[in-house]
C-alpha cells in the first residue's frame, strides 16, 4: 500500500498541511505521526490541517493520529482542521466525538 512521502507534509505560514493517503489504518499511521511530529517540533507551527481529499478509507487509527496531534498543539492554542472529508470520513469523526475538537471545513 502507498505510504506518505515528504511532499505530503507542507508548512504554510503557521499551518502544517498533511495530505493523507488513500487508506488510513494502523499500518501507515506510525509514519504519519512521526513525520508530522518532526515538523511540529522543528517549525513554528501552530495549527494542523488534515486534508482528506484522497482518502477513501479510515479506521480508528486515524482517530488516534488526529487526537495525538491535537494534544501536542492544543496546549499552545493551536487548532486542528479537517478539509475535503467525504461523508464516510465525517461520519467517523462524528461517531468518535472528534468533531468537537476538529473543525471540519466544507469546501
Amino acid at each position: 500500500m502507498e505510504q506518505v512521502t515528504r511532499e505530503d507534509f507542507q508548512v504554510i505560514d503557521n499551518c502544517l498541511m498533511i495530505r493523507l493517503p488513500e487508506e488510513i489504518d494502523h499500518h501507515g499511521a506510525g509514519l504519519i505521526c512521526e513525520s508530522a511530529d518532526r515538523l511540529l517540533l522543528r517549525e513554528d507551527v501552530c495549527n494542523v490541517v488534515f486534508d482528506f481529499e484522497n482518502t477513501r478509507f479510515m479506521d480508528s487509527s486515524g482517530i488516534g493520529i488526529i487526537m495525538g496531534r491535537y494534544r501536542k498543539i492544543s496546549c499552545f492554542g493551536g487548532k486542528v482542521y479537517a478539509i475535503h472529508a467525504d461523508r464516510q470520513i465525517q461520519r467517523i469523526l462524528r461517531l468518535s466525538g472528534l468533531n468537537k475538537i476538529v473543525e471540519v471545513l466544507e469546501s
Partner: peptide
C-alpha cells in the same frame, strides 16, 4: 503510547 484511540470495539459495534 501507540496512539491508539480506544475506539476499536466502539466502531465494530457501531
Amino acid at each position: 503510547e501507540l496512539e491508539r484511540s480506544g475506539m476499536g470495539f466502539a466502531f465494530m459495534e457501531a
